[in-house]
Write a protein that binds this DNA or RNA. Sequence first.
RNA 1: GCGGGCGUGGCGGAACUGGUAGACGCGCCGGAUUUAGGUUCCGGUGACGAAAGUCGUGGGGGUUCGACUCCCUCCGCCCGCACCA
Length: 874
Amino acid sequence: MRPDRYNFAECEQRWQKIWEQNQVFKAGELETAPKYYVLEMFPYPSGRLHMGHVRNYSMGDVIARFMRARGYDVLHPMGWDAFGLPAENAAAQTGAHPAQWTYANIAAMRTQLKSLGLSLDWTREIATCDPEYYQHQQKLFLDFLKSGLVDRKKSKVNWDPVDHTVLANEQVIDGRGWRSGALVEQRELIQWFLKITLYSEELLTALDKLERWPEKVRLMQRNWIGRSEGMLVRFALSQPFDSICEIEVFTTRADTLFGAKFIALAADHPLSKKLAAERSDIAEFCEECRRGGTSAEAIETAEKLGMDTGLRVAHPFDANWMLPVFIANFILMDYGSGAIFGCPAHDQRDFDFAKKYSLGATLVVCPDGVAPSELNFDLEPYEGEGKLINSGFLDGLTVSQAKEAVANRLENTPLFGAPQGSRKVNYKLRDWGVSRQRYWGCPIPIIHCEACGVVPVPEQDLPVRLPEDVTFDQPGNPLDRHPTWKDVSCPSCGAPARRETDTMDTFVDSSWYYARFADPHNKHLPAAAASLNRWLPVDQYIGGIEHAILHLLYSRFFSRAMRDSGHSAASEPFSGLFTQGMVVHETYRDAHGGWISPASVRLETIDGARKAFLIEGGAEVEIGPIEKMSKSKKNTVDPDEIVASYGADTARLFVLSDSPPDRDVIWSDEGAQGAWRFIQRLWRVTGELGCVAAAPGVIAPQQTGAEALALRQATHRAIASVTENIERLRFNSAIARIREFVNELTESLDKVQEDGVGADQAFAFREAADVLARLIAPMVPHLAEECWSDLGHGGLVAQASWPIADPGLVAQARIILPVQVNGKKRAEIEVPHDADEDTIRKESLAHDAVVRAMDGKPVKKFILVPKRIVNVVV
RNA sequence: GCGGGCGUGGCGGAACUGGUAGACGCGCCGGAUUUAGGUUCCGGUGACGAAAGUCGUGGGGGUUCGACUCCCUCCGCCCGCACCA
């Protein structure tokens, strides 16, 4: 007996069990089929799934199920980005060991994920904190070291002197550590770096070929890599200072050299440091510059400060022209040469700086069509194109000609035995510092020996495991203060030596996990070449836009580093990328301004205005702005609760339907109820269809009446547009089309006569029902299975093939053509789809509304866009 | 500060490569069914207007026979900025 209501709780569990028993989602079972690898960014095991996860994984699941139905061998795995700071914070707060905390969280989240009915291949599950995983990461690190892709150098960090730890920029608030409140110091540590800059050019140019990436992400990466063509120019000091006799600057505007007013050095420039060693005022100023923080944001938004060092340099084109040398807080040592020449008239920052220190400005580029005398640069600098003025031999040249001329001249001007200037391509991209002074990360497999220096851990000694007996009750790195862990003998000379106690940035873990999924149980290799070649690259990667730069760029570097150290063939990790939006929710606050959870709020519409009341007590609460779900604002919705009260299919349908997937979706209870109603409606409609449909597998009858034909056309048009929308990842539009199709089916069912249907209609209803079950299967898979089985099918809809639209049934015989007069729509005409222009013209001009709008004026122009529109210009 | 994005009815959004603005849903209004409804079904719903029609895609300007779509400019909101993941 078919129940009136779809019992999601019972059905969802039952189908999940059947899928699992039949291993329906195991990858690699169809070796002759083309492969398709769909991957969602793996989660950090915080312990609770949030709606953002539900949305992310639902999208991936639609693609996975869709591609499986289309005959692909689909790899759709899941794992855990399991190293990271929160586990250590939890350990410090609750005493739970990071491993214990992490694995408990993984277990909880795995259960939550499984309740969503995602078509994941759980046999490939990995966790990055598992030695089975990180031993291969250590091997990769050593292979990269051999291939010259690893470096060890000094780098500046934010040091918290109380917590004895390095802080991220976001952990530095107003110059103080977020936890200790201590004034943060800048320290130089020797750190391990991966040499991503070796790939600057390749990472940049290869972006052009990533056609299935959003253009905005490619642009962001392009800007991040920051290629600029310019020159290195050396300025001679009027008097050598402590053996330094020149300053080298990088500039992209060598054409403006005649507008130079000053030289500015970074506080960390070698010359600044030498000056600081001798002069306390300079030392103090440099300290002040460092206090601002290391982030680019802090440096660039800070007020521009400088200090005249008293040093002078000679202008390259006039030995008698002296320029002052400043130390300035907006110059970054990491970029270019850590020194610039300032041209106030043609650069905003130089302009601001010169204004503040009254350094003057000389105009050297004049926009075309403007007389130099008309120029007024008191208010803002001019950064555009034009012709050179006030510039000696450059006068009259364009900006690019002047750059050429300066380069040619300086390349042939000797200074201290070398050309004074040289062309240089500079990148903003810096090497990737991977050292972290933390416990819960992948140990860097290195041993420090006094005699032999830096010695790699021999391969047979891998993995270097984290010690388990550590405590988090004291500040600092537990690995560093562990009594015995770091004591080893040198693999090369046998003398007592010390382990590297730094662990790797967790971005390293996530830079190759997609490759491990290809061969997750391989004991000897990160992944066998055959597996990598079978599965890589990931065909569709899905995750948040917040990873647009770092994670994705590091992964792109890693796949190249793996290629160049002999692991795999693919250069790019992800051939398709999709960045989904967040799940956001209204906020609620009580009379005292305290945040109120949506679960304790009841919404009502009174006189057209939405109002919110506390469920307990009934006091009115204020409806606040819609914001990203966060614990602090209590505007989160727990997926478990939604799954318990509405079912996984409703949750999945809702997060996919209301907004385009790349934009934020607003979670609302009304919307969730709407999705739930549609689930029930689908169930009822399939039941009604089942009553009038022919038996499964019946062959199309010879004769098809008008009703049946219309229904078949609706079915095939639905197939065509749902398929197209899923291919374009427009899940919201795909669902809208399914809803339209269901509306059409309801209409057809309403027209069915009491005395039943003919064979042609029975066939059309059968076709429609079978198509509907398959079209909804990627989004609401449990319901789809239930309908499929209810419709009399033996197998699983998860294993059924995707319906194919018959082009003959999709095409329209007659089309409706809007008619415009002077660009305004005045009428619609219906014509055969292949009507010729004359017919259309006659019919358009004969239409009442068109005649009226033309007001007796003659036709000036008749525009026909085939199958789209007619425009009569009078 | 630099870089990236977004802006369409009461609300979420649709509109493919410049060709009918508002698909589909939510909400609301009206009706029917039901012992009941937080169920289901049917109809209506951008604004102004009696209608013809006029206006309308954040504001202003431009290109075009035709602009949500392209260009310029202004406003508002969001994201990233290298040790959060």
